[in-house]
Design a protein around this nucleic acid. Structure first.
Length: 800
RNA sequence: GCGCCCGUGGCGGAAUUGGCAGACGCGCCGGAUUUAGGUUCCGGUUCUUACGAGUGCAGGUUCAACUCCUGUCGGGCGCACCA
């Protein structure tokens, strides 16, 4: 058989569609398996060769699970709200909905051409009002439970785009898109209280099977630290509260630092002799852009407050107070005790301002550098703590402070609440109404979805308000509570909103009574295997886990974690080893590959390109190897004859089935393919195989190259579709070799290889080894010191 | 700066977790088929001065190290003054 991929691929894709081969059924009695890949943002550029890497990988898993008899849910959809679409719409005066429709159509055609076994009956789109109705519903539930609140805060504002930017859109202090400087503006923003879930977001990671890297990233992002809050009296009479993770070093605190924004600066206005200097420092600090702040981080700056001093509570010493921007107002209490001997930043600051450095933990040389080790070292110069280990000292000092009411154990997080407002058009409207009498009132559930009004211009306003603010007809409405005049919220939700719960909608995508039925959620959730890019492992994963936990709390979900298993794929780079981008001119279009080589070759190549979890450069030369492999596979139809199995190939086939089965689970797709390549080489050496063997081979190849596998399966007389045929089982006994080749080492160097039956004992192995000519020669005249025999592995004879 | 990961032929990468380093593929070399090119098939392909040497470099543990430990250099990712 020739591998005429154009005909074969069209034929089987049509067939799969006709019989709805990959539809997940609502038969809740069958064992289920939910495989999920991140749904793409349908950009105007079309599919990137990186997309199929993840999609093919989980397509392989999904196809294998179907063959193993599971009811598989492997869905696809569109994360279609977002800035590039809105910008394209503004530039070309086309409605973003039209742009989205076009892009989706292109993406869908591209995905379909790859033969991915998505259940297209469950396709979703975050911009569809029947979808975002439920995004709004979840938001209202959060609002109802007090987890959504409005807060005045400093936001990033692009001076050129005149748009408020999310933190993620600010790269090195400039606008990610146009490169113009970003300044801070104070605006009221809707916030989600994700910090209320900080502990659970860390602790529940214990119960899930995420790759370690992802777990640590989540943990680091949340940034939980344990320490103490300690109150220092001041000469002004106002107690100054600080946060520290090293209360054990309290005796070494030689000065204090408060953030430039700290309220005490104004409180102490009359007491400070250099109030003006402090204020001008504060102004300089807030005027600095993020860019300058990070750039200037190398050099410490600050102002010593003249007129107020703090008192160290353990030794009664008066110490100076500084303001410096190395202390952040948003973390802890916005004030610290500085222990230069045991903190790098404090040490640097102390050196610059010539402040005393008092060693309180022995073990380093604090004249040279701060000694920050907490594992070793004993307390010194610390009164009643002297001689204790750091850990003991921590306990004791906290007890001491607690007893006197001047300190308490305290846990802090780096995680901040989620800024949920965007001043944009192309996003979900926030369904709230502001009434002068009643305050913020939820749009009644019966009025959801609150759809986006048609506007003439999508451009953001000069003031940074959403374009929706100009739609006075839409904005002015009645208060649902009192019937008085109300104004709608004009901010929309961030792109993260729609993707924070999409995996739930797939369970029951057409439900208009709930985001999904209870039964569907109970059956399908949690997601069994979720694969996606490392770039989404902090925010998207954190946000969606947060929403899932909230939905668990309000009894929508039965599971507290949405994803059982999370894996990640490496990026596909350009031929030159750099990230693919238009500007670098190294972008590969998947359509071209599919056209020239076919979908099966493309799929195989993407999986063979290297270690799945690592990034790999695109190598057009190597595609040939995958193409040849499939041609040789198709050519096996000319060698097939007879029934049953041939003894010579039987063992190899069992081994290959085992290897492929195991490698798929371990995401070692490259070695699974290598094993199948080796097997095919063996068949060509043997010169013949049976139809049964070829059918079995088709079955294990089917997840990787489904179209050709169907064709060959049909040729062998296989029943129905190979995509739905049972996954081949291997006989463990037939995967073991009868004879084993033993390398024989002399002093750790291989000198000979002898062949023995698998069950041979130590003595037999050794006897055979010594009878080997080369070994005998090597042993002559030498004294044997030691003989190591590892059955099934190796023999090493140590001689002198 | 801190945290995590990675360094193996000309290239992408294997190595059952401490047991024959270089599977599989690309590329390259030689041969066959072909008028020729391409395709296909067969053989070879870590280096070597042929003794050996060899998994970035220098040490260590071990009968045995790509694998474990220490130091060091190089690359990637994440966080970035979080007290």
């Amino acid at each position: 058989m020739k591998h005429d991929f154009q005909t074969i691929e069209a034929k089987w894709q049509k067939k799969w569609d006709e019989v709805n081969a990959f539809a997940a059924t609502n038969d809740y009695t069958k064992p289920k398996y939910y495989t999920l890949v991140e749904f793409p943002y349908p950009s105007g550029n079309g599919l990137h060769v990186g997309h199929p890497r993840s999609y093919t990988a989980l397509d392989i898993v999904s196809r294998k699970r179907r063959m193993q008899g599971y009811n598989v849910l492997f869905p696809m959809g569109w994360d279609a709200f977002g800035l590039p679409t809105e910008n394209f719409a503004i530039k070309n005066h086309i409605h973003p909905r039209i742009v989205t429709e076009r892009n989706v159509a292109r993406f869908k055609a591209q995905l379909k051409s790859l033969g991915l076994s998505f259940d297209w009956n469950r396709e979703i789109n975050t911009t569809d009002p029947s979808y975002y109705k439920w995004t709004q519903w979840i938001f209202l539930k959060l609002f109802e439970k007090g987890l959504a609140y409005k807060k005045k805060m400093s936001v990033n504002f692009c001076t050129s785009c005149k748009v408020v930017l999310a933190n993620e859109e600010v790269v090195n202090g400039v606008c990610e898109r146009c490169g113009a400087p970003v300044i801070h503006k104070v605006k009221e923003q809707w916030m989600l209280k994700i910090t209320a879930y900080a502990d659970r977001l860390i602790d529940d990671l214990e119960d899930v099977n995420f790759i370690e890297k992802v777990k640590t990233q989540q943990i680091n992002w949340i940034g939980r630290s344990t320490g103490a809050e300690v109150v220092f009296e001041t000469t002004a009479g106002d107690p100054l509260k600080i946060y520290t993770t090293r209360p054990d070093t309290l005796f070494g605190a030689t000065y204090m630092v408060i953030a430039p924004e700290h309220e005490y600066i104004d409180l102490w206005k009359d007491k400070l002799k250099n109030y003006d200097e402090a204020v001008s420092y504060r102004e300089a600090a807030t005027r600095k852009s993020d860019f300058e702040r990070t750039e200037l981080a190398k050099e410490k700056t600050g102002v010593k407050l003249d007129g107020v001093r703090a008192i160290n509570p353990v030794n009664g010493r008066e110490i100076p107070i500084f303001i410096s921007d190395y202390v952040l107002s948003g973390y802890g209490t916005g004030a610290i005790m500085a222990v230069p001997a045991h903190d790098d930043r404090d040490w640097e600051f102390a050196k610059k301002f010539d402040l005393p450095i008092v060693e309180v933990v022995a073990g380093g040389d604090v004249t040279q550098a701060a000694f920050t080790d907490v594992e070793t070292g004993k307390m010194v110069n610390s009164g009643f703590l002297d001689g204790l280990e750091v850990a003991e000292a921590k306990k004791k000092i906290i007890e001491y402070l607690t007893d006197r009411g001047i300190g308490v154990k305290k846990i802090n997080f780096k995680l901040r609440d989620w800024v949920f407002s965007r001043q944009r058009y192309w996003g979900e409207p926030i369904p709230l109404i502001n009434c002068e009498k009643c305050g913020w009132v939820a749009v009644p559930e019966s009025e959801l979805p609150l759809t986006l009004p048609e506007v003439d211009s999508y451009e953001p306003t000069e003031t940074g308000e959403s374009p929706l603010a100009l739609m006075t007809d839409w904005v002015n409405c009645k208060c649902p509570k009192c019937g008085g005049p109300g104004k709608r919220e004009t901010d929309t939700m961030p792109q993260w909103a729609g993707s924070s719960w999409y995996f739930l909608r797939y369970c029951d995508p057409h439900n208009d009574k709930a985001l999904a039925s209870k039964e569907a959620l109970e059956y399908w959730m949690p997601v069994d295997w979720y694969n996606g890019g490392m770039e989404h492992t902090t925010l998207h994963l954190l946000y969606s886990r947060f929403w899932a936990k909230f939905l668990f709390d309000i009894d929508v979900l039965k599971e507290k974690e949405p994803y059982k298993k999370r894996t990640s794929h490496g990026m596909i780079l350009g031929e030159n080893g750099e990230k693919m981008s238009k500007s670098r001119g190294n972008v590969v279009n998947p359509d071209d590959i599919v056209k020239e080589y076919g979908a099966d070759t493309m799929r195989l190549f993407e999986m063979f390109i290297g270690d799945f979890e690592k990034s790999a450069p695109w190598n057009p030369q190597s595609i040939k190897g995958c193409k040849r492999f499939l041609e040789r596979f198709a050519g096996l139809t000319d060698l097939a004859k007879g029934k049953g199995t041939t003894p010579a190939l039987e063992k190899s086939l069992h081994k290959t089935v085992k290897k492929v089965s195991e490698d798929i689970e371990a995401m070692k797709f490259n070695t699974a393919i290598a094993a199948m390549m080796s097997f095919i080489n063996e068949i060509y050496d043997a010169g013949a195989l049976t139809f049964d063997e070829l059918a079995t081979f088709s079955a294990i190849l089917a997840p990787f190259a489904p179209h050709l596998a169907e064709e060959v399966w049909a040729f062998c007389g296989g029943k129905g579709l190979v995509s739905l045929a049972p996954w081949p089982v291997y006989d463990e006994g037939k995967t073991a070799d009868d004879e084993i080749e033993f390398p024989i080492q002399i002093n750790g160097k291989v000198r000979a290889v002898v062949t023995l039956t698998a069950g041979a004992g130590k003595d037999e192995i050794l006897a055979k080894a010594k009878s080997d000519e080369k070994i005998a020669a090597a042993l002559e005249g030498k004294t044997v010191v030691k003989e190591i025999v590892v059955p099934g592995k190796i023999v090493n004879i140590v001689v002198r």
